[in-house]
């Protein structure tokens, strides 16, 4: 990892050293530094306090800080590991690490399970699945009759609920994803491999040599 000696003072609450974050994620130190540039941009877009608020995530995703959405809320909640209403830099990097092309598939499957376990019961339940289907239909202005929605939910649920106990557990979810790998397509962001190109401003000032 090399010898790290920071000359910079990071006063941002929740800031963690790139060397520490790189050791715990698929990112290199340079990539973590580049992510800090992105983090600074996002965390100052509405409230300039070095923390990402929900409105700032909504602004980044929708170009509208007031647009609420079930899935954006879930993404925010999963990134906000400490559940204190904001995303800190360390939380941001560790969560994005799951989206890295080199992150373990197991982590991606686990993340999607938690994403869809809306009420955090440890299971994806039929009502949650229907709620998410209705949310995507509403979001996309797509009209489907309730009968069609029920049929889609029933079919999917019976395919995934191998034990037939009315809920999808993590093991069943893993099996279902293995049969339908496109379900974790959103969990890989190719951009993360090029993050140092997207946010290169740090390169001239970086103080750490990557070990890779």
């Amino acid at each position: 990892m090399g010898c790290y000696h920071s000359k910079r003072t990071k006063e941002t609450p929740g800031y963690e050293e790139p060397t520490v974050l790189a050791a715990e994620t698929p990112f290199t130190v340079s990539e973590v530094e580049a992510l800090y540039e992105l983090f600074k941009k996002l965390s100052s877009s509405v409230i300039d306090d070095g923390l990402i608020h929900k409105e700032e995530l909504q602004l980044a995703l929708f170009r509208n800080k007031n647009r609420r959405n079930l899935f954006a809320d879930r993404i925010f909640d999963l990134f906000d590991v400490k559940r204190n209403g904001v995303i800190e830099f360390g939380e941001f990097v560790r969560s994005l690490g799951v989206f890295h092309p080199n992150a373990p598939v197991e982590d991606k499957i686990h993340f999607t399970f938690r994403l869809y376990d809306l009420r955090q019961t440890g299971f994806i339940e039929r009502e949650e699945l229907k709620e998410m289907v209705l949310a995507i239909l509403h979001e996309s202005d797509l009209l489907l009759s309730d009968d069609v929605v029920e049929t889609i939910v029933d079919k999917t649920f019976s395919d995934a609920d191998l034990k037939g106990d009315g809920k999808i557990d993590p093991e069943e979810w893993k099996e279902f994803v293995s049969k339908n790998p496109s379900l974790i397509k959103n969990m890989t962001l190719p951009y993360l491999k090029d993050i140092t190109l997207a946010f290169p401003s740090f390169v001239l000032s970086t103080e750490v040599e990557d070990s890779e």
Binding site: L61, N69, I152, K155, T156, S182, N186
Partner: peptide
């Protein structure tokens, strides 16, 4: 077991949500 080729998987439908595509975070 028989399959229903014309029926979209509910999770595939959910995955179409733009909110689940975080690439928007990287747009300048």
């Amino acid at each position: 077991s028989p399959k229903s080729p014309n029926l979209i998987n509910a999770f595939q439908l959910i995955g179409m949500s733009s909110c689940l595509d975080l690439s928007g975070l990287f747009e300048k």
